[in-house]
Amino acid sequence: MKSLADLQAIRAKTLENINMRKEDENAARVVVGMATCGIAAGARPVMLKFLEEIKDRDLQHVTVSQTGCIGMCRLEPMVDIILPGQEKVTYVKVKPDMVDRIVAEHLIGGTPVAEYTIGAAEA
């Protein structure tokens, strides 16, 4: 290491990895339903896909966590996306190939993918 820039590079590279340990009010949260019903319906590949997308796109301030069953097992796998300061948006029957769009349009773009949400499914 010969310069401050080298130091910055290491900092940036590691930071995305340990960001979750900092108090971060601006973090967007991706919450995947991972009770028995969620897992049986295929929540795990969905969550892994989220992790992969977030890593590939180098997104900062996003945490991925899991939650238990909220009772609508028939709609699993369910994923909540909570952007800072906004109402949560719930996606249902999420499949790994839907994750790409959710990340691009919602997490990055800020516009929920209406057709995947619980509102669309129940309408």
Binding site: L4, L7, I10, R11, T14, N17, I18, R21
Partner: peptide, 25 residues
């Protein structure tokens, strides 16, 4: 209790060695 003390990268991510860089340069 926040970082892995055996991993210098984690220290750097939490602004480690920035002060040394600032002082020296």
């Amino acid at each position: 209790g926040v970082i892995d003390p055996e991993n210098i990268d984690e220290y750097i991510a939490f602004d480690g060695y920035q002060a040394l860089g600032k002082a020296l340069t």
